[in-house]
Design a protein around this nucleic acid. Structure first.
Lengths: 272, 272
DNA sequence: CAGTGGTCTAGACCACATG
DNA sequence: ATGTGGTCTAGACCACTGG
């Protein structure tokens, strides 16, 4: 069963499978709350592939009826799954299955998400915006330029196996990169931009990691529910002369990433 | 107003102040849900100090009545504050104010939380357990010793300004540290143990950062509500000969820490 | 328009911690 | 024994999205 939605064909989840897990008898409520038992079953179904990634679940009213609980109890189970990034609810549309939160390793030292070790699946990069603008407050401090200085702003979204997983906002000092766009566009590669401006190597000068929660922008881009916990990562890269050339600030769904920092090594810009 | 509770004198929150923010008229519900408006007011009150850290709020029934909403709506506001680590609810006891989630910087390189830069307040270290045991799976890999090998296990809780903020579990190869306890106990210092065994310096070999949620143990130790999002940090330290001597695995409340890798400057990671 | 998720009400029972 | 937070029910209205 398939229907057109948002220009993408979306499959409904396997109804029989859902009925099966919905009709299983509950354990004693005193040991584990009903909503947690429902959560367990749905989480397992997500994990073992019974619920296909991208599939749409039945409506909350139907689900509540299937599981023989109130809609509120049903919602509590669904909301925990959303908080963990396994489901996404869209108002007026439905609840959708997200890819199970496999972990990705990010190696530090040179590039960042370039080194993301995913499964066999491809990594897509969506460039959401490439504009000229003025530097942000944090960017000014990181890049060591005055507030209001011109920067190239690059906003990107990384997609792995069809799931948006990393949203990032980068700033570059405009005077260092007069030909940013020309160098960037062909392969959507920041390393290409550096190379085109005579920067063969760059080093990670500083990385900051903090937790937070998804606002509107983050939730929409990452296809998450608002207030989902996130990992915020900001980083500054230097050229070989230790002048800052890039300030990057991004976020990941909390449960979808593992950051690995080893001994710092400086990297080479790939040239093809 | 003060009463004895848990062997500690606990103050009730300023009732007049709560009534004041409870009786303010609500904005249009279509713009911001009631529970979010309540959340806003309580979050502000936590932040500006109207609600003293450690104070106990009125019961949920009373609160709901004061704010002229159902208990469920009230609970939704409270639960968001718990998720952010600003409040903690204890079943059968009450809801308590936690210290506002000021951020702490952790500098990497050598020690970890030793370098925690808090406010003027002191840092306490509670040693929860110091025992002999067998190495964990991850510990075996990190320490490069066979599974089941004997290790010294150290479980500690860091408390800053009265709030538990970092729970950690460390493993050390037992054969390297025959006099662990004798060296550790006087000052509760791992550095002392290293020094007593001829290790003058150590280096951080690897750090891994991942997100997760509080289980029972973490919630109790950190005095958080279960399922609160956490930052998990695991690290391996080497001696000068690059032999692994310590595997550490700990967690922080998500919103209470900012990890900084690289040269130290001031500033916070913020959302893009 | 119909259906979706988001919010809210007014009750109720339970397990738990304290006095 | 009392009051606490945790859970659950059976309704209801709303804003949003899609066809």
């Amino acid at each position: 069963m398939t229907k057109q939605l948002n220009m993408i064909s979306v499959a409904s989840a396997d109804l029989d499978r859902i009925l099966e897990i919905a009709h299983a008898p509950y354990g004693p409520r005193s040991e584990r709350a009903i909503w947690l038992q429902i959560y367990d079953r749905l989480a397992n179904a997500c994990a073992d592939g019974s619920l296909e990634s991208g599939a749409r679940l039945p409506g909350e009213n139907d689900l509540a009826h299937m599981f023989s609980v109130t809609r509120l109890t049903m919602r509590k189970a669904l909301s925990k799954l959303q908080q963990e990034g396994r489901l996404q609810a869209r108002k007026g549309v439905g609840v959708f299955v997200r890819r199970p939160p496999a972990r990705y390793r990010v190696e530090d030292g040179l590039r960042f998400s370039e080194r993301l070790q995913a499964r066999a699946e491809g990594i897509e990069t969506h460039t959401l915006a490439l504009t000229s603008g003025t530097v942000s407050v944090q960017g000014a401090r990181a890049l060591n330029i005055p507030e209001g200085a011109p920067v190239v702003v690059l906003r990107r979204l990384r997609i792995v196996g069809g799931e948006p997983i990393y949203l990032t906002n980068k700033e570059f000092p405009a005077d260092r990169f007069p030909d940013f766009e020309a160098a960037y566009v062909p392969r959507q590669s920041v390393a290409d931009v550096f190379a085109a401006h005579g920067i063969e190597r760059f080093t990670r000068a500083e990385t900051r990691i903090a937790g937070g929660f998804a606002g509107r922008r983050e939730a929409e881009a990452l296809r998450l529910t608002q207030r989902t916990p996130l990992l915020f990562v900001s980083a500054t890269n230097h050229d070989p002369e230790k002048r800052p050339i890039e300030f990057s600030s991004g976020c990941w769904p909390l449960a979808s990433v593992e950051l690995v920092f080893g001994p710092n090594v400086s990297g080479n810009v790939r040239r093809s």
